[in-house]
Design a protein around this nucleic acid. Structure first.
Lengths: 229, 229
DNA sequence: CACAACAAACAGACCGTTCGGTCTTTTTGT
DNA sequence: ACAAAAAGACCGAACGGTCTGTTTGTTGTG
């Protein structure tokens, strides 16, 4: 084993390029391993089925390591929810960026949001947390923050990228909210639905959405950068 | 599940004045007590939190009585789901009958469905079962039957009571499906939403719905009777 | 530079509790 | 008398959380 000669300052960022794994790196890696495993377990086994045993098995980490990093299972869930939030933002940004360059109509928008979010593991996890939050006040508070900031960002990008048609009866902001609810409800029913009904439902909603609003002509692509973060 | 007044003929001492409960009555009563308690526990504690202890405490029935009537917890859940189905049909019939006599527009329809179904305990239970069914194939099969027959009845009454407006882009049947999904997604987000947003969302959807279809002029009230049962 | 001393990260045994399901016993209706 | 119904003790498994012991990286001192 190689020895690290440079005695660094007390609390510096280890510059991310240590030849040997520093303590901070070890810590960070196992933490994210556990958090990722937790999200995966939530998607596979559900909220109630996600226990310490499942998480440490999925993360291939000892029970002691888990206990060293997280005081309780509830705390792990809360941190995992925050971890999930980062993924949601990342994925959302990717979808929006894609829709900016390919000037999409409502159909493309609906399909992209469905495929990238509501038909993905992210939504499975979010659904589990959302249902569980009805009995766990701490989790509910966390999700309230999450959805609040997400909604704010979404409102901003919506009002600058879409405009209502003359015959519309609803604003684009509310239409996007309705889209979220339609797709969420659809994702719940999807496992029970016959083949093909899903695409028909998505198409129906896309038609309805397209009859109410349209995307503004891309005035300046730079503005869309403000939606990030 | 019919309560029989027991026109017994065998024994010479029926004692019409004696309020002594027959075996069949005892059996039926404890069974429904347990089933009702199960649904209530599902609404209060959720699927994972509904165990034998909670059910027997809620039903005020001994553990042995439970074991005598139900072979396992899974079987109890399945029967409770069937029990719930009966309630859903009953409530649905009441809402439809009410809407028939008070010739309602889309706004009244949406509000009635929200209040009578999606904001009630029935939806809480159904949501728990729906989410749990993703990991329990037997439950998923049961719910598939339920939603299938419900959808068939709903389709029939929809196409005979509503007609699309000239400018509509979607059929009433699909609009009603979309309504189900909107309200389901809304019911999920409702606990996290600020005060007042809920009513605005319901109103927005009602406006959208009203711009697509209208109720047929009540041609004959007798036809609506076919929707029941 | 070497090495002791320390602290953080890790590993897994252990404990009290709770769960679903089975058992025996007692009550109740026929 | 007999059988169905009800009551509750009992059991093994699984859970979350705590405990003690071991490894690994960091740091102070000669």
């Amino acid at each position: 084993m190689t020895r690290k000669p440079a005695p660094k300052k007390k609390k510096p960022k280890p510059a991310a390029r240590a030849p040997r794994r520093s303590q901070a790196e070890r810590r960070d890696e196992t933490r994210t391993r556990i958090l990722d495993a937790t999200l995966h377990c939530l998607a596979i086994h559900g909220y109630a089925g996600t226990g310490v045993a499942q998480v440490v098995a999925q993360a291939r980490v000892s029970r002691g390591a888990w206990a060293h990093h997280f005081p309780s299972m509830n705390a792990l869930i809360l941190e995992a929810a925050q971890h999930l939030m980062a993924r949601v933002y990342e994925r959302l940004g990717a979808v929006l960026r894609e829709l900016v360059q390919a000037d999409g109509d409502a159909h493309r928008l609906v399909l992209a949001v469905w495929r990238e979010f509501f038909a993905s593991e992210v939504n499975e996890v979010y659904l589990e947390l959302l249902v569980a939050s009805r009995r766990e006040p701490g989790l509910a508070e966390k999700l309230k923050q999450l959805s609040f900031t997400l909604e704010r960002n979404l409102d901003a990008v919506t009002s600058q990228r879409f405009e209502p048609l003359p015959s519309a009866v609803t604003e684009p902001i509310e239409l996007l909210l309705l889209t979220r609810w339609v797709l969420r409800g659809l994702a719940l029913d999807a496992p029970l639905m016959p083949e093909g009904h899903l695409d028909r439902a998505l198409a129906a909603w896309a038609r309805l959405l397209g009859s109410q609003m349209r995307s503004k002509s891309a005035t300046s692509a730079k503005d869309s950068a403000a939606a990030r973060q």
